[in-house]
Simulated assay, not measured.
Amino acid sequence: MSVHRIEGYVIVSADGMLADANREMPKELKFAGDQQFFNAALDSADLIVHGRHSYEGQPNSPKRKRIILTSATAALSPDPSNPNATLWNPAGASFEQACERAGVRSGTVAIIGGPAVFGMFLDRYDTFWLSQAPHVRLPGGHPCFPGVGERSPQEILAAHGLRAGEPRILDAPHDVSVTPWRRQTSV
């Protein structure tokens, strides 16, 4: 049986968006402090999970083991363009089967998006690292979770049993911070 610590990572605009109307992360959401935090977290993760529109594009990215969610495969298959990647269709295989196929039976799994992927793990996160850029708005953008718009990202995380920890400033001039949202366990 696999044992994983599941952590999510996203930076959002004031209106809860992670991408613009073209499904791209605009330069307005890119801050050096957040990028450093994100890169360090992914360097320490054992496995990265994302959808076909998400990719971190960092120097170490090609070296990282990853699972890419897609409907282009029936269940699980190797990614022909990346020997470190496994293609996964959740309709045909479980997350645990995908991890096994990727060769990662334990350790930290970093979920990096997009919205549907983040949504799939809402009840499984041990910690969700929510970075916020409070002076950026992306009207018509893509939300970080399904349901953002009716509710804030914070309300959605709380509704799934996560509680906010102490925020940390990542970029003081732009008021960008990251807040760890941790799963509450019964004592």
Rank of each mutant, 00 (worst) to 15 (best):
D126K: 10
A158E: 15
V109K: 05
Y55G: 14
V178C: 01
R5T: 15
I6R: 07
W129G: 01
S2I: 13
Y55K: 13
M25P: 06
L76V: 00
P78N: 12
A19C: 03
I111K: 01
I169Q: 14
D79M: 02
V117E: 02
N82E: 07
G149S: 05
R66G: 02
R105S: 13
K65V: 04
D34Y: 12
E100I: 11
F121H: 01
I48E: 13
L138R: 10
G103D: 08
Q184W: 08
N60P: 01
L42D: 09
Y55F: 14
D34E: 15
N22L: 03
E28K: 14
A75D: 13
A98I: 06
A75Y: 03
L18W: 09
L47I: 05
D34G: 05
E155Q: 15
A133L: 06
R23N: 15
P146E: 13
L87Y: 01
T127H: 08
A72H: 14
F31P: 08
H142L: 11
G147N: 07
T73V: 15
D171S: 14
A98C: 04
R163W: 05
A40V: 07
A45D: 08
N60Y: 12
M120K: 08
L87W: 11
S152N: 04
I112H: 06
L47G: 04
L122R: 09
G114W: 09
E7L: 00
G147F: 06
L87M: 11
V10Y: 02
R23Y: 11
R182H: 12
A110Y: 07
S177A: 14
E166H: 11
P83S: 07
K30W: 10
E150R: 14
L170M: 05
A164Q: 12
P173S: 05
I156F: 07
E166D: 12
I68Y: 04
R64Q: 14
R105D: 11
S81Y: 13
V136M: 08
P115Y: 00
N84G: 00
S152F: 04
V117K: 03
G92Q: 10
P173G: 02
H135R: 14
Y55I: 05
